[in-house]
């Protein structure tokens, strides 16, 4: 028996290497069983990551990486558990992770999906990359067109008086080169993946961001009918995967190395946005979070309350 694992991340991402390790662990543990887990990276199974709530419950693919923030169209309650930018420090993240994992397990359960494990995402530093002139205050940001990647960011920046628009990942390069946008919000850590340093000259750090972990999902029915030995091997490998990824010590170091590399390629790294601006930003994010939970209604309000309690806010 072979299970396909749908990974929407490009093969080059560190998370994909971790998932390869996960598959290797599972396959090693089940070497004398008729079972293999086969990884498919980079969305090569042709499943859009926003549609996974329609695919995984059908059992059309056996196992899939899922990220709640992509699933907001079909499940607004999932999309509003973590609002990007609302949780910034590692301490805050560690405080909410157990609650978040509990919430995700429940929420996916409602969709007939069993959560067999989690993959942690490193804390990221989100910066503003601009093509023509350095921008490192909100004041300056109000004069340019800013690319963002999620609807919640549009809401937040609109509150701050910044003209933000969503440009999908694969269009950012051309959008910046042609001036459809002047600046793009992006983590320096991943900037090279879309060759951002080739179309922008200046960058400044705006806000730190801790993200919702990825979950690994399997259709309920399939999971229930699976040999317990196979289930155990998968869960054990998933626990090890979580242990390996739930580490944030190297995050700052990696971020600095990424920035240095971009600077070596000709980018000018400017001063950070002032603290006062960042406070305005965080305040706007909180408002957005409340608004999204309100809009999603139902379980979303409960989820937000539980997250806030864990944060002590």
């Amino acid at each position: 028996e072979e299970w396909r694992f749908n990974n929407f991340l490009p093969e080059t991402r560190p998370e994909s290497a971790q998932l390869d390790q996960f598959a290797e662990d599972v396959n090693a543990a089940l070497a004398d069983k008729d079972f293999t887990l086969q990884m498919y990276h980079g969305g090569s199974l042709g499943l859009p990551n926003t549609d996974l709530l329609r695919v995984v419950p059908t059992g059309a693919v056996e196992m899939s990486l899922m990220w709640s923030n992509y699933l907001g169209r079909d499940a607004p309650e999932l999309g509003s558990v973590f609002v990007q930018g609302a949780i910034s420090t590692v301490d805050e993240l560690k405080a909410v992770l157990p609650v978040a994992q509990e919430i995700y397990t429940e929420a996916y359960n409602d969709w007939d999906i069993t959560t067999v494990g989690f993959v942690a995402i490193p804390t990221l530093s989100v910066s503003v990359f601009c093509r023509d002139e350095p921008v490192n205050t909100l004041e300056q940001l109000r004069d340019v067109k800013l690319r963002v990647w999620a609807r919640e960011q549009v809401e937040t920046f609109t509150k701050l008086g910044v003209a933000a628009q969503i440009v999908p990942q694969e269009d950012v390069y051309v959008a910046l080169r042609t001036g459809v946008v002047d600046c793009a919000l992006y983590p320096a850590l991943y900037a090279h993946t879309i060759s951002l340093q080739e179309v922008t000259k200046y960058a400044s750090f705006l806000y730190p961001m801790a993200s919702a972990p990825y979950t690994i999902g399997v259709q309920d029915k399939l999971w229930d009918n699976t040999d317990p030995e196979i289930k155990d091997a998968i869960t054990a490998a998933a626990d090890a995967l979580w242990e390996r990824t739930n580490q944030y010590d190297a995050d700052v170091e990696n971020e600095m190395a990424a920035r240095e590399k971009l600077v070596a390629q000709g980018l000018t790294w400017g001063e950070d946005f002032p603290d006062a601006d960042r406070e305005q930003f965080v305040a706007a994010v909180s408002e957005t979070w409340a608004m999204l939970a309100e809009e999603a209604g139902g379980a979303a309000l409960d989820y937000r309350a539980r997250m806030l309690t864990a944060l002590g806010r």
């Binding site: 067109k145 549009v154 003209a163 628009q165 969503i166």
Partner: peptide, 13 residues
């Protein structure tokens, strides 16, 4: 709108 008024229409796409 984007070029002249400087306000992108979010809804266009």
């Amino acid at each position: 709108m984007r070029r002249i008024a400087g306000t992108p229409l979010h809804i266009t796409e």
